[in-house]
Structures are given as structure tokens and as C-alpha cells.
């Protein structure tokens, strides 16, 4: 048996964190080092007909983690359109998640 090594900590991150621009810090590697798993949001410039079902899928997965008792947080990026879209969709499902402290 391998045992259960899951951290039970999940952070939602915008695409700009997964794919940082040249010269930007690698925040994804930082959260990885702290043991967090990530739910990566789609790029904010993706057409709505493609992005919306991907955001819906992200919401469904976050709800599964919340219902499973996992800690879920948002990587603070309030000015990111993709993050705003996700937060709105999560709120529409009656759920909220706080920013990563």
C-alpha cells in the first residue's frame, strides 16, 4: 500500500499563473512546493462558448472537493477576468471560497 499522500488542499488559479508571461515569477511552482493541488482556470481570452463549459467543470470539481471536506482557496487575482468569471459561476451555485491567506 502507498498510503494516502493527498494534501486535501486545493487552490484555484487563473491561466496567467499556470502560464506566466516571460519574466514573471512562477507562482504555480511556489504553490506546488507548499503541497497544494491546483484547479487551473481556462485562459480569460477564450471564446465564451468554449470557456463557459470549462468554467462549469471547474465549479463542479471545486464543489466535489468542498463536499469531500477538502480545503479550497482562490489564489488572489481579483483583477483577472477568468477568476472573476469563475467566482461568479461558483456564487451562482450557492458556494463561495476565500482567498488563499
Amino acid at each position: 500500500m502507498r498510503g494516502d499522500v493527498r494534501s486535501r488542499r486545493v487552490v484555484v488559479v487563473p491561466d496567467v499563473v499556470v502560464n506566466p508571461p516571460d519574466g514573471a515569477s512562477d507562482r504555480l511552482s511556489d504553490v506546488a512546493l507548499c503541497g497544494w493541488g491546483v484547479v487551473a482556470l481556462p485562459p480569460s481570452d477564450l471564446p465564451a462558448d468554449i470557456a463557459q463549459p470549462l468554467v462549469t467543470a471547474a465549479v463542479d470539481q471545486v464543489i466535489a472537493f468542498l463536499d469531500g471536506g477538502y480545503e479550497v482557496a482562490l489564489l488572489p487575482c481579483a483583477d483577472d477576468p477568468g477568476m472573476r468569471r469563475f467566482v461568479a459561476a461558483l456564487a451562482a451555485s450557492g458556494r463561495t471560497v476565500a482567498d488563499l491567506a
Binding site: 493527498r6 486545493v10 484547479v39 470539481q61 477538502y70
Partner: peptide, 28 residues
Amino acid sequence: HCLLNANAKVDEGARCQGVHSPVLALLR
């Protein structure tokens, strides 16, 4: 999904806590 989030794996199925850093480093 689980290569960036091992928390999605079944109990005892995870190979790391969260992000599989060796794969991430390779992609970087």
C-alpha cells in the same frame, strides 16, 4: 487533471500531495 492536482485521485492512488512537480518542471 491529477498531474496538477493529485487530490483528485482515489484514496491511495496519489503519487504526490498536489502538483506533480517533476512533470511541471519538465514542461517548464
